[in-house]
Design a protein around this nucleic acid. Structure first.
Lengths: 201, 201
DNA sequence: CCATAAAATGAGAGTAAGTGTCAAATCATA
DNA sequence: TATGATTTGACACTTACTCTCATTTTATGG
């Protein structure tokens, strides 16, 4: 994937980090998020509790990684400038999600499940979405030549982010569905609706 | 405001509750949110720490009251059915905010300031917005006759919520502005843009 | 291969939020 | 005023998270 920057030290750190996350995820699924203590996770990953907090600032941060936002921004920037903003975002979404492997997909599914179930996590995920909103506004501003704070840019950025939020699981869902590729079809369709002025018929 | 159901006991409880919130707000502004302890708040309000948690499940909940959502829903429902959904929401917003007194306005300003500054609070406020999104979808579903889970309803609801989020302070703002009546003009304008298909010119 | 600097780790003490229990104080009602 | 129901305070406990300091582990130059 990314270049191999690995000097023994880096490798160990990456391994510890991964071990912490994996054991945490496993324990969360086995016993629930709240009743899994940081000490348990640290012990499972064979590090001291102190070390845990050197890798993750909080228990929540274990599953609050979101590597996709920068990828998406990049993909949007790569769209030809004559494509209107929302359409550019739609295409970028499709491109990025086309590259996702089954494994990543599966781990993302487990992550989303936790985000949906644990309120503290949902809240923080929600907050990340607000950060994403600002990113979206930036790329829209770039493509339109308008300042990022312009109300038209904010409105469009907000609408895009809102549609994503409303259609993707963390935005509630009926609780059952576990996040499937088809959800992203829905997402792209939702942005299509937005582009067409939100027709109701 | 509300009817007076008050039997001495209820009055005392209401007073304690108010005292806790007011002293908390004061202390937060004086010393910051993080460095104000629950014990300090309890002491200032002259109750025991145990009692504090009987009134508020957590420190965060002290400032996470949001009384407006139900009012807004009601105001939307009161709009004549031929008014299209987004326009109905716009009108409801205007009506509700027109009734807000200066005092309420001022306390809301202080509240918003905290919500903007303290990350944990921002996260939870964000999450409330997700709840609001579902409410919005419900009223849209009512007005259109579509099921609440329909993608067109979700897309529109998401867009509306997103526009609100992008334009109102908790959605970041340039940091400076303290929340003014003019912000609501912006909000109404933003929804107007959405209604018009998000024109950029 | 060794000495030394730099980085990572572990141990332990401490703070503060939040929970649960139980006895004492306060209010309601006859 | 007596009785029952609520509310309260005191206390002990768990857990997330912070800080400090000594020890270990990795990197590097001779």
């Amino acid at each position: 994937m990314t270049g191999t920057p690995t000097s023994l030290r880096e490798r160990k750190k990456a391994k510890t980090r991964a071990a912490l996350r994996e054991h945490a995820m496993r324990l969360f699924e086995e016993q629930g998020y709240a009743s899994t203590t940081v000490d348990q996770i640290a012990e499972a990953a064979e590090v001291s509790p102190s070390t845990f907090f050197r890798y993750f600032p909080s228990k929540e941060d274990l599953i609050l990684v979101d590597d996709y936002d920068p990828l998406l921004v990049e993909a949007v920037r790569a769209q030809p400038p004559e494509v209107p903003p929302i359409e550019a975002i739609r295409r970028a979404l499709r491109e990025v999600f086309a590259t996702i492997t089954m494994e990543v997909w599966e781990s993302e599914r487990r992550r989303q499940k936790l985000l949906a179930e644990v309120p503290e996590l949902r809240s923080r995920a929600m907050n990340q979405m607000a950060g994403a909103l600002d990113l979206i506004c930036e790329v829209i501003a770039e493509r339109t030549g308008l300042p990022a704070g312009d109300i038209r840019v904010r409105a469009m950025g907000g609408a895009v982010a809102g549609v994503v939020l409303a259609i993707l699981p963390p935005g509630r869902m009926t609780g059952n569905a576990p996040l499937q590729p088809s959800d992203f079809d829905r997402l792209v369709d939702g942005l299509d609706l937005l582009q067409k002025g939100l027709p109701l018929t």
